Amino acid sequence: MQTKIFTPDQIDQAAAKINQGELVSFPTETVYGLGADATNVSAVEKVYAAKGRPSDNPLIVHVADVATVEKYSLPLDEKVKKLIKQFWPGPLTIILKLKKDALSKKVTGGLETAAFRNPANDATISLIKEAGVPLVGPSANTSGKPSPTLAEHVYHDLNGKIAGILDAGPTKFGVESTVIDMSTDTPVILRPGAVTKEQLEEVIGEVEESGKKVTNDEIPKAPGMKYTHYSPNASVEIVDSDEDWDDVISFSQSQDHQVGILATDKILNKQNWPKNCVTFSLQNSINTASHLLFAGLRKFDLNPEIKTIFVQGFPDVGLGDAYMNRLSKSAGQKHFKKV
């Protein structure tokens, strides 16, 4: 199979592929998703095969309007309606209880709930409308690898495995959507993202954050709760404070391989990096760092000479919560410590 790059003026062609049961990657404001007709079981199965994704890892259903959600879900309560009014279209995924047999168990991971999202991307909204069906859309990468923020990232991972990629340029946020479970008595954030806990509570009141570890025999309600995510081939370590970078330099000088440095300009410009250090800028804030994290990890992943990657940590508040969630999983919770 040859993977075709579709431009925004070729959305009708991309939609035709979706209607034929093929896979087309699409852009959102967070990361690129891997699209298939959510009502076509064989197409959904192709998503799992293309990604190498475990079959009990549920998929997010992307919709162009609220009416599509209401077609599949039980009646929306007032809190859900408030969230939709405030944050859709946008980087918020909402888990809802489903009508009986409304969606295939292949989409839901065998659960009686499903995750819905209305992405803030004009090209993808047009694609969904043109196809006339909701689209499943996990991140368009090989399972476990850093999520794609550019069409070329998708092409690198999935060329020859999918029919096409709708290229609408780089994504805005760079970390996946916030996932909130609204099927429980108290709303629970299952995955932090660009919409923060504080923002959610301003709209619907108390919101809990899940610290639950999903065991091997449990089905996760949302992506990212059970399986390894965001991991490049090289070892990743989090650098917690500015004072630790001198020790990172000392460590790097002692290595006979290349070392990746992913940090803000403040850090990059402050240090005299050894020749074996390859740097990537997170620019100057948690906003830019969140946007560029996956791009940096992917760039280093393309360099087989890089065996270790050091990444700047941020306080896990606000958007920093989402950033550190992704970074901690990428690093396997490993933090740099001076030997």
Rank of each mutant, 00 (worst) to 15 (best):
K17A: 06
G313W: 00
K266N: 08
D9R: 15
A67Y: 14
A36M: 05
S143N: 08
T171K: 00
E208N: 13
V47Y: 01
H335S: 00
I261G: 03
S25H: 08
V203I: 12
D185C: 04
Q2H: 15
G33S: 10
L292C: 07
D265V: 11
G109Y: 04
G174C: 07
L96H: 04
E218A: 09
S177D: 04
I249L: 13
T108W: 01
T108D: 02
L293T: 01
G224H: 06
K99V: 02
T196H: 06
V63C: 03
T186C: 07
G260I: 03
N159T: 15
S241W: 13
A163W: 01
K329R: 13
A140D: 08
M1V: 14
G193T: 10
K81Y: 09
D265R: 14
A49M: 09
E45R: 15
Y323A: 00
D247M: 04
S73K: 04
F314L: 06
G164H: 02
R298Y: 00
I219T: 15
T171S: 03
Y155Q: 13
S328I: 09
D185V: 13
P170Q: 06
A295K: 11
L282F: 00
L292Y: 10
D12H: 15
Y72T: 11
A120R: 15
G132Y: 04
K197G: 03
E22P: 12
P274I: 08
A222Y: 01
V133F: 02
D65F: 10
S177N: 06
V317K: 11
